[in-house]
């Protein structure tokens, strides 16, 4: 018990060479983080390679003979509209990631500000932000998004999509950051910073922010994953951008024409497998980062 286990040392921010070496060593031990990073890097290089070496215009309808199985001409086959599914994979992944990353970024930024303001200053402003967060957290997110997207109609661009998704993406980060700030503002070093005559601004940015970085990283990946999930869900319901070949839209059309019943397995499997790789990659990274940010899990080796 108390005799045996030394307290886990905090993250050490030494020289940058040691920092990177520590990260590599850590990746060796944290397998889920490593596998997640490899999956996403693989997908990213496929997309980048595709944009460089493949004709992505083939993702548009009537580019090739429709409803063809995979062949030397179209590696992943074509759909009923004559889109080359390999080109769709490249363009769709990029579009989906764009929506996820941008919405995630906005969500984390807004959420962090709200969480910080509420957690740090407390009082009525915290109560108000907390109520707002609670209200939004109580809704099935997809439902509110459906109402928004349905009312905006079928003319959504991917940029509109980013804002629609971001409208709900701030909830989880706000809550996560707030609870962390609540703990942190009671920390001895924050009290000491006040005694040091440091301003609230200084306490937030110099004292608390650096220690929040691991939590922000986890929050960011989680939010991106949630944003991608929401975006693909909306697209699969037919509420996404109509004229851009997103992955969700491909799923939508595959369902619409009952591709499975027609035996066009490639049409279903291409977006499904790509999405699975994306989701599993994001998931593994979050569990890996969670372990990094949560020393208790680390200590228990769970």
């Amino acid at each position: 018990m108390a005799d045996a286990a030394p307290p886990a040392a905090p993250l050490e921010w030494g020289s940058s060479a040691r920092f990177w070496r520590t990260i590599l060593l850590y990746l060796g031990r944290n397998k889920s983080l490593a596998v997640g990073v490899v999956l996403l890097l693989g997908l990213a290089s496929l997309v980048i390679g595709g944009y460089l070496f493949y004709d992505v215009k083939l993702a548009e309808p009537l580019s090739k003979m429709p409803a063809r199985p995979p062949s030397a001409d179209a590696w992943l086959g074509t759909d009923k509209h004559g889109r080359d599914l390999f080109a769709v994979l490249i363009v769709g992944t990029a579009l989906t990631c764009k929506v996820g990353l941008l919405a995630g970024l906005i969500g984390v930024a807004v959420g962090t500000v709200l969480g910080f303001v509420g957690g740090f200053f407390r009082g009525w402003i915290d109560a108000a932000i907390n109520l707002l967060t609670d209200v939004f957290l109580a809704v099935p997110p997809l439902l509110i998004l459906v109402v928004i997207a349905a009312n905006l109609g079928t003319s959504l661009s991917t940029t509109d999509m980013v804002f629609v998704i971001a409208a709900l993406a701030w909830r989880e980060p706000a809550r996560r950051i707030r609870s962390q700030v609540l703990v942190m503002r009671e920390a001895g070093y924050v009290n000491n910073a006040r005694l040091n005559g440091t301003s609230s601004f200084g306490i937030i940015f110099k004292e608390m922010m650096p220690n929040l970085i691991p939590y922000l990283m986890v929050s960011f990946v989680l939010t991106v994953a949630a944003a991608v999930l929401a975006a693909v869900g909306l697209e699969a319901l037919g509420l996404g951008p109509q004229n851009e070949p997103t992955l969700g839209m491909t799923v939508y059309w595959a369902m619409h024409y009952s591709a499975s019943l027609l035996g066009m397995w490639w049409w279903v499997l291409t977006p499904v497998i790509t999405l699975v790789v994306l989701f599993v990659g994001l998931y593994l990274i979050t569990t890996g980062l969670d372990e990094l940010a949560n020393p208790r899990l680390r200590a228990k080796g769970a």
């Binding site: 699969a236 595959a254 499975s260 035996g263 397995w265 279903v268 499904v272 998931y283 593994l284």
Partner: peptide, 20 residues
């Protein structure tokens, strides 16, 4: 890992395997 995948994508695969 399955939990990371949205239900409906699992559903699409299940339809393909167990039904079709």
């Amino acid at each position: 890992i399955l939990a990371a995948i949205p239900f409906y994508l699992v559903g699409l695969v299940l339809v393909y395997v167990f039904s079709l």
